[in-house]
Amino acid sequence: MDILNALVALLNFVIIPASSYGAQLALGALGVTLIYGILRFSNFAHGDTMAFGTGVTILGTWGLQAMGVSIAPLPTALLALPFGIAVTALLVLGTDRAVYRFYRKKKSDPVILVMVSVGVMFIMNGITRFVIGVDEIQFDDGERFLISAKAFKEATGLAEGLSLRSTQVITVVTAVLVVWALFWFLNSTRTGKSMRAFSDNEDLALLSGINPERVVAVTWIIAAGLATIAGTLYGLDKSFKAFNYFQLLLPIFAAAIVGGLGNPLGAIAGGFIIAFSEVSVTYAFKKVAGYLGPEGWQPDSMLQLLGTEYKFAVSFAILIIVLLFKPTGLFKGKSV
């Protein structure tokens, strides 16, 4: 029995990676859920919005690097974020003006809007490829580790190393700040309150003189900001590859639905539920079990429930279970 080492291994391979991944998913799901709440459709272009925002942020990063600007030990990309958010917000506002507004005025079926968002997804995907290409890009130039495995072993004398990447800490800290700001905005400002009113009851909100176009515009700007931040954090943590963001769509939708579509608090909870299940189901617990068992004993199998290739199956299974047993999600969301 070696509880300390088992705990460190669990922290290192499950809890820390799942926390940062969960924060990224939560930010993505918040964007999806806000758009669902206000505009009432599932935005399939959200993954590609994230990719586009990240791509622009990378361009900004390169520009800053060329000018010699650096905020070491933090990655330069954080400094380029406002630029990325601004460009992405302009793009989605333009998209709304050119594409979505027409269907909103016509009061089209949600499924038509979903289809339209597929068209937007294609175009955004094309723009992203056009701007930044399809190759994998590493753009994290900050300090790599806060705690490296080697230093941790030397300091504690444990057999198991613990590494804490700076991007993981940045992700969680940024996510907390963003969520705090978002909730403050939604709960305390006039615009935020009008957004919540619009989401709860559109007709009543219109009657009380809320300008729907303004609410929609603010929603898009916030969604663009959330998508860019989530995408950049994901890119810093792993790497940037446009297609990966399309594949993030499934866990993000799963997170938003698990929490209850249209419910911001649910999106955050859903993001962490999906991330922790995904990581713990695909992690091989052999090492942890070895530490917990009697001295010198190792389990015969890897103790891995599913291969990492099947991580999508985890979010999918959770999604199906929630849809079957609680279609409104864990926190009360909308369901028709």
Binding site: F41, S42, F44, D109, P110, V111, V114, Q247, L249, L250, F253, A254, I257, E309, Y310, F312, A313, S315, F316, L319, I320, L323, L324, P327, S335, V336
Partner: peptide, 26 residues
Amino acid sequence: TALGLRSDYLAIATLGIGEIIVAVLK
């Protein structure tokens, strides 16, 4: 499992099943 729920849910659920089948074949 997914029919009988609202229309977007079928879209999202089938998106998942598509990914999983391809992952199995890979």
